[in-house]
Amino acid sequence: MTGETHSHIVKSFDEELKHLNQTIARMGGMAESQLASAMESLVKRDSDLASRVVSADPDLDQLEQEVENAAVRVLALRQPVATDLREIVSAFKIASDTERIGDYAVNIAKRALALNQMQPPGAFNALPRMSRLAQSIVKDTFDAYSERDADKAVDVWHRDAEVDEMYTSLFRELLTYMMEDPRSITAGTHLMFCAKNIERIGDLSTNVAETVYYLVTGAYLDGNRPKGDTTSYTVVRNTEATGQGDTDQNGGGEDSA
């Protein structure tokens, strides 16, 4: 192999990796935009915007397919090792998690189409705050990827616990509203699903952050992932004497919120 041929191969490989990275970054921006638009459609009761979010979902799916096809092609033709191999493996994982972030944003938009036809309960006001935090985490996650910043990835990894805590608080508040006013059950249920979708977006962003850390350092993050979601332990109690509801985190009367 001549030096010129070798140089051409290296340059072509670098261009393939660059295109892969750009596509991943584009997916991240699209997922972040979908979440922002889905929440805007809910807050502003804009069903047309919600419909556009739903109809745009195939675009993100297509980009995921492009990443997978490009990654397979590079693996087959280039047989990368070390850092280059981590690039390809990470691209597979990040593309999958990003596509799922988009799916959860679409789910919120679908719920918005239903919620826009009814009056949401008072706990609705907490949902946009939770979404803004999730949006900032998504943005910082893909900034960490673009910048190859392991420290920023670790920061995202820790911040997901705050999304979980907000979800737990909102979950309990919505339960209380629905128990006090059965007329709010339908809207409250839709909002619960919206909140859960946002919480899952936070989890997926954490997945991406872990992959970014691995990509940059070649090592895995140590320790258990921080979690603040305790809704799995929440027990609903109906206080018949007052006609109002109450919620516990462990069924034993100990309120940990």
Rank of each mutant, 00 (worst) to 15 (best):
E165N: 12
M178E: 03
T186A: 13
M178L: 03
G243L: 12
I198N: 02
I198R: 02
D46C: 08
L17F: 14
Q244W: 15
G28H: 04
Q244E: 10
S41N: 07
D151I: 15
H158I: 15
Q79F: 14
A241K: 10
S7C: 11
M39I: 14
A76S: 13
D255I: 15
V236T: 10
L85G: 08
T217L: 12
Q34Y: 02
Q34A: 06
A105L: 03
T141P: 01
V67F: 02
R148I: 09
D248N: 05
Y233R: 10
M178R: 01
A112L: 06
S7W: 14
K93T: 14
D48S: 09
T242G: 13
D229I: 07
I108T: 01
A257D: 10
N116A: 11
T231M: 08
Q22N: 12
N116W: 08
K110T: 11
N69Q: 10
T5H: 15
S205H: 02
Y104F: 14
P128Y: 01
F13P: 03
A114N: 08
A219P: 13
V154C: 05
G223P: 08
A70W: 13
A134Q: 04
L204V: 11
T230G: 08
D149P: 06
A126S: 13
T168N: 01
A150L: 03
R129H: 13
N197D: 09
A82N: 09
D48I: 15
I24L: 15
M30V: 15
L42F: 00
P58W: 11
R129Q: 15
K93F: 11
G253F: 15
F142C: 03
E40C: 11
D222V: 14
V236Q: 06
L175S: 05
L49N: 03
F92K: 01
T206W: 04
A187N: 04
A150W: 05
L127E: 00
T217C: 07
V138C: 11
Q135W: 02
G122M: 08
L133G: 05
G188D: 00
V208W: 01
P226H: 07
D59M: 07
D57R: 07
A219C: 15
D84N: 12
N238M: 14
Q65Y: 15
D155A: 11
N125M: 12
N224H: 10
R86G: 04
Q117N: 08
M39Y: 04
F92W: 05
I24M: 09
A209L: 01
E15C: 08
L191W: 01
L77C: 04
S205V: 07
K44H: 11
N21E: 07
T189Q: 03
A105Q: 01
L75E: 01
S131I: 12
L85I: 09
V43M: 02
I24E: 00
G29W: 10
T239Q: 14
A114E: 12
A71L: 09
Q119V: 14
E15S: 05
V106K: 07
Q22M: 11
K11C: 12
M1K: 12
